[in-house]
C-alpha cells in the first residue's frame, strides 16, 4: 500500500508517496532526481549509494524510504554551498583523488562523517572508515592523501602507516 512520507534531504523537506518496497536510493535518484547518490551493486557491498542519516553514513540501497520518514539525510549535493565546494571536496580536487568519479560521492560522505567524529585521523583510521567504499580506479592512495589533507592542510600531522586504530 502506498504511504505518504516526508524526507528532509539537504535541509529541504520533500513529500513523497511511495510503496514500502521503494529504497531510499530509488527515492533519492528516481523520485527526487538527485543523481549524485550512485547505484552500484544495489546489495550493500560497494558504498556508492552512501548518504548521511543525521551524522552517520548508511547505505541507501538497502534502506527502505519508509524507514526514513521524518529523518534528516545529506547527499553529496548537500555538501557544497552553491558553487563553493566543501573542504573535503576541495581536498579531493587538490589530491586528484577522482578518476571515473563513480565512488566519489560515497567516499566523500564517509570521509566527511569521519572528520566530524575524529578530526585528526591516522592512515589506518581512514582506511577503516572507508572500508565500505570500494573504488576501482584510484588505488585508494590518493583518496587517503585527500582525507589527510582535508584534516590537516598544513601537512604537519605524522602520516605514518603503522598507527593503531583506537577503538
Amino acid at each position: 500500500m502506498k504511504q505518504a512520507i516526508e524526507l528532509i534531504i539537504n535541509g529541504e523537506t520533500y513529500d513523497l508517496i511511495v510503496t514500502p518496497n521503494v529504497t531510499l536510493q530509488e527515492a533519492i535518484r528516481e523520485h527526487l532526481g538527485l543523481k549524485g547518490t550512485k547505484a552500484g551493486c544495489e546489495m550493500g557491498t560497494c558504498g556508492a549509494c552512501t548518504v548521511l542519516l543525521g551524522d552517520k553514513p548508511i547505505l541507501s540501497c538497502i534502506t527502505l524510504a519508509v524507514e526514513c520518514q521524518g529523518l534528516e539525510i545529506t547527499t553529496i549535493e548537500g555538501l557544497s554551498e552553491g558553487p563553493t565546494l566543501s573542504n573535503m571536496q576541495k581536498a579531493f580536487v587538490r589530491a586528484g583523488a577522482v578518476q571515473c568519479g563513480f565512488c566519489t560521492p560515497g567516499v566523500i560522505l564517509s570521509s566527511t562523517a569521519l572528520l566530524k567524529k575524529n578530526p585528526q585521523p591516522n592512515v589506518n583510521e581512514i582506511k577503516k572508515a572507508l572500508e565500505g567504499n570500494l573504488c576501482r580506479c584510484t588505488g585508494y592512495n590518493s583518496i587517503i592523501e585527500a582525507v589527510l589533507d582535508a584534516a590537516d592542510p598544513s601537512g604537519h600531522l605524522d602520516h605514518q602507516q603503522d598507527q593503531e586504530i583506537k577503538l
Binding site: G44, I58, L59, I62, E131, G132, L167
Partner: peptide, 16 residues
C-alpha cells in the same frame, strides 16, 4: 564483543 562488532561489514553497515 566490541571487537567483533567493529569487524562486521563497513561503518555504513554497522550504523544500521
Amino acid at each position: 564483543l566490541a571487537q567483533a562488532a567493529f569487524h562486521v561489514g563497513g561503518q555504513q553497515i554497522r550504523n544500521r
